[in-house]
Simulated assay, not measured.
Amino acid sequence: MRSDLSLPAAVQLCYENVNGSCIKTSYAPGPRLLLYALFGLGAALAVCGNLLVMTSILHFKQLHSPANFLIASLACADFLVGLSVMPFSMVRSVESCWYFGDSFCRFHSCFEGSFCYASIFHLCFISVDRYLAVADPLIYPVRFTVSVSGACIAFSWLLSITYSFSLLYTGANEVGLEDLVSALTCVGGCQVAVNQNWVLINFLLFLIPTLVMISVYSKIFLIARQQARRIESMSNQTTVSSDSYKDRVAKRERKAAKTLGIAVVAFLISWLPYFIDSIIDAFLGFITPTYVYEILVWVAYYNSAMNPLIYAFFYPWFRKAIRLIVSGRILQGDSASINLFPE
């Protein structure tokens, strides 16, 4: 929950002639337009980029794999952030007022939490998937099947949605903060206060998957180094074909692990400052200035636009899929069978 201690000389209200209206902080036309452009660009990238990821994976048969279904579901979470969270937060951040009603304010906060936790749970399962693929690439297809991938996706979504909606709709997050909430509540505001107990639980739900991902990717790094050294030490050129095939598969899986590892690092860099600030606020009386809070929120939001850019940079198949989608070739009858992988 945020409140500014200093008020401008000419006080503006979110709702003129309404008792209890929140105070509005106005920007000059130039900065206001710049902020709308910056935030709008982030929302557009999140929606369009993740829509391309989902379309690519679901349309092209060559991409129908358990690991890619996890990536498509992750892209769905980021897509929903760009579609249902960022546009409304953009107006709130620039206008410093909430014009979409109290009911949708609560929904908006639930969406924000649900999609954040869904993303981190997906990334955690993806890291385990990459570990299995790199550790033993020949056995991996038998161990990580479509049904296993579906169970991971269902768990990520159900836990995230159930937790976020239950917390905010039962009012458990405001227990012990009733006086503060009452004092700072005004018409045109959309602020959620979370008490110390639930802030710690929120942080643990972020921290535990993070530690799992760090541990798993550390093991992946060690395995990749061992595999690289083994390949370099092989001086005998008469290697049997099965070993040669295994090495090629291992190399492909290591590259995929590296790319998704970068996506994990980007997620942590984006969201960790926000979660740290939430703990500081809860234990020090919500002292974060409004503009600092908005910066942290938008750094976190922009993570939803980053993953498609990472895929486009590292995955040639994704760049080819984008060209086919944009050119309209996916409308052809045989487009789903097009080969996306370079020989």
Rank of each mutant, 00 (worst) to 15 (best):
F69D: 02
V91I: 13
C48D: 10
Q62D: 11
I57N: 01
F111E: 00
N68I: 01
S89D: 14
I126F: 06
A72E: 14
S127P: 01
L83Q: 12
S65R: 11
L41R: 12
F39N: 09
L51H: 08
S89Q: 13
M90I: 12
C124S: 15
A133C: 05
L80S: 10
S109F: 12
V134T: 01
S109K: 07
L138R: 12
Y131G: 01
I126N: 00
F104K: 00
I23D: 13
V85P: 05
A37I: 13
S56V: 03
Y99T: 07
S89E: 13
F69P: 02
F79I: 08
D78W: 10
Y36Q: 05
L80G: 10
V53N: 02
F88N: 02
F100S: 03
C116A: 11
S96Y: 04
L52G: 02
L34A: 15
L45V: 14
R130C: 10
D129W: 11
T25N: 12
H122N: 06
D129K: 03
G42M: 12
P137A: 01
A67V: 06
A28C: 14
L33K: 11
V91N: 07
M86A: 14
D102I: 07
S56P: 04
G113A: 06
A135W: 08
F121E: 05
E112N: 13
V94Q: 07
V91H: 08
I71T: 10
M86V: 14
M90D: 08
S26R: 13
K61N: 08
D136Y: 01
A118L: 01
K24R: 15
R92V: 09
V81W: 13
T55V: 14
I120T: 06
D136P: 01
M54G: 00
Y27S: 15
F69T: 01
L123I: 05
A72D: 09
A44M: 15
D129V: 12
L80E: 13
C22D: 09
A44V: 15
A67G: 10
S56Q: 04
G101M: 05
G101W: 00
S96N: 07
W98H: 03
N68K: 12
D102P: 00
C124K: 09
L123C: 02
F88I: 07
L52M: 09
L83T: 13
L52R: 05
S84P: 12
A133H: 00
H64K: 10
F69R: 07
K24G: 08
F115I: 07
L34G: 10
D136I: 00
P29A: 12
P66F: 02
F111N: 02
I120V: 08
S96F: 04
F107R: 04
F121N: 07
Y27A: 14
M90N: 08
F115E: 04
L138E: 15
A118M: 01
S56D: 04
S26W: 07
G49C: 05
L80W: 10
V85T: 08
L58R: 04
R106H: 12
A77E: 09
E95C: 06
F107N: 09
K24E: 09
I71Q: 08
D78P: 13
A43Y: 00
F104E: 04
T55R: 14
C110P: 00
L132P: 03
D102W: 01
A77L: 10
Y36A: 05
A46N: 06
L80N: 13
V94T: 09
F100D: 06
I120F: 02
H59E: 02
R130I: 01
F60Y: 07
F88S: 02
